[in-house]
Design a protein around this nucleic acid. Structure first.
Lengths: 333, 333
DNA sequence: CTGTTAGCGCCTTCAC
DNA sequence: GTGAAGGCGCTAACAG
């Protein structure tokens, strides 16, 4: 049923070693032999068995990527960046979705370890570091994505979220707003707490107030719920500006606010999100946001991962990008 | 460096066969031995090598899924459906993105074949059938996703796109519209041509006209471009209703139209999309759409794939879901 | 330049 | 209930 190198060798009248050479180092084989072997491969419909290669190599040619939410376009962009760079290096990317759940993250980490992946790219849910350290100690390179590593134990590619939070808040303050609200959660996600912290600092410096409105997840639905809560308040008690922890939340908020009818964006309430996903520019009231170089984050992660394998000091390398304000109609009069 | 069953066996004072049994059929081993082996596994930090298992088994425990566009939330929903069902069956899903390009599709198909995946779920770009037939003939189950198989050679899970097109157009006609436009492309994608066909039939029956406005891909950007083209026309020459081949296009269209200022949605132009992605309900002018049961499509595909392995007649099974109208503000006065 | 050979780590008979 | 042995398909020495 299944065609192996042995069958190919037999048909071509050469040895299996030669077939392997044709496959992997054709320049070491005479053109005539290459041709014979190639013909045999085609005639037989031979396809390499990757499992056998991996077993031999001791490691697979796949990189595992665990993200918080595949439905968030920001992460699919990161994935695309990683995928493209990996493809250039002859590797493929296995995309896994933790859904912000520690348990799911662990399941995928186990799976990846069983597969002896070439490396793991992960945006950890919470303080799940022991497992990651174990992975690293067992020889699997780990790179933290979109998350600076506090303990310096891992290479990481991140965006300065504290700075991003400050940028967002500063922008709202520059527009003359003073009663800010931060919508986001859970705070156990570092991105959320950092952005909040940056915003708080900006407000502390410029004068003004910032209240915290918690959400259960970073989704459109949760944004919608938070928006309804704001609309339900009497006008005087509403914030005059909202900074949402990501664009999904901001889009949900926007919908609730506009549907309510009596909250005008940006006149009554300026709104800014985070990530600058495609849908933000396409929103009918285009959404201001803080842009992160998503694709670049993905490709850089792969680069770091691969250099990690080479040198030891690379293991601790950290790349931090600075986010960028994208001001649109939702926050500018 | 790497710990194998042999090491575990040694430490536990048993043979490798017993370790294997503990791993795969613990009920066949005495509790005491199980305990000893388990302890040894933990002490050593043993992790199964999946490549070796696969090599032995001759097939992997992974399903390959090739979609047209990972950035389209419809497909990520399909993927989630597939993933969940696969997980229940102890399989994992490898998600690949063809970006509507035949070449990329072929690359992934090759990759999957080398990996001896348990099966392939694919939304083919175009008439790439010969390669798929080959795969199937070599023993890899193939299920066509979101695409009815014309030649009956493959199992498939689809939504009746002709009917969906009719539903969309009928809805617009019911609203009293008569000068329709269909925005979408390329028509080499079956979903596009089918939806167009359904719409054309509906128009033919009810009276009215429908023009075709082609796009290069099914993306927000292309929708925006098409929208600008419509806005550029003098008002009398604009359609009074637009049916977009998917929600991404519709969202892009919506943005162009609204930004233009002089086209009111739905008063001057009613708009309906297709897929009912999350962002559609969240749009500030909520978008009407034709809903497809995305998650169900994914999970059913996996079911079909697995039953394909069991019986031969299952190979030709076809599941067709009927889409459903979701009328929102963008098309209803 | 080509052939031979020895495993990679696991699982599954087949004996005991 | 447990142990020993063979082999899945491939590649990288090492000979020739």
């Amino acid at each position: 049923m299944t065609v192996s190198v042995r069958d190919v060798a037999e048909l071509a009248g050469v040895s299996v070693g030669t077939v392997s050479n044709v496959l992997n180092r054709p320049e070491k084989v005479s053109p005539a032999t290459v041709a014979r072997v190639t013909t045999a491969i085609e005639r037989l419909g031979f396809v390499r068995n990757d499992a056998a290669r991996q077993l031999r190599a001791g490691r697979s040619r796949t990189i595992g990527l665990v993200v918080l939410d595949v439905r968030n376009p920001f992460f699919t962009e990161v994935a695309r960046g990683a995928e493209e760079r990996a493809a250039e290096r002859g590797l493929s990317v296995l995309l896994a979705n933790s859904d912000e759940k520690t348990e799911r993250e662990l399941t995928y980490l186990d799976l990846f370890e069983e597969q002896r992946v070439a490396g793991i790219l992960v945006t950890p849910v919470a303080e799940n570091m022991p497992r990651l350290r174990l992975l690293r100690d067992r020889g699997i390179p780990v790179v933290l994505v979109d998350r600076e590593s506090k303990d310096e134990a891992f290479a990481s590619v991140a965006v300065d979220d504290v700075e991003g939070g400050r940028i967002a808040a500063d922008h709202l303050l520059d527009q003359g707003r003073r009663r800010l609200a931060f919508v986001g959660g859970p705070v156990s996600i570092r991105q959320v707490s950092d952005r909040l912290e940056g915003a708080q600092r900006a407000v502390a410096e410029a004068g003004g107030t910032i209240e915290f409105i918690g959400t259960g997840a970073l989704t459109v639905d949760e944004g919608r719920i938070a928006g309804q809560a704001i609309v339900a308040r009497e006008p005087a008690r509403r914030p005059d500006a909202v900074f949402a922890a990501n664009d999904l939340l901001a889009l949900g908020l926007l919908q609730s606010l506009v549907m309510a009818g009596d909250v005008r964006v940006p006149e009554d309430l300026a709104l800014i999100g985070y990530d600058d996903i495609d849908f933000s520019a396409a929103a009918v009231i285009p959404l201001s946001s803080v842009r992160q170089p998503a694709k670049l984050i993905g490709s850089t992660s792969v680069d770091l991962l691969l250099s990690t394998t080479e040198s030891d000091e690379a293991k601790r390398r950290h790349v931090v990008y600075t986010p960028e304000l994208v001001a649109r109609a939702s926050s500018v009069l």
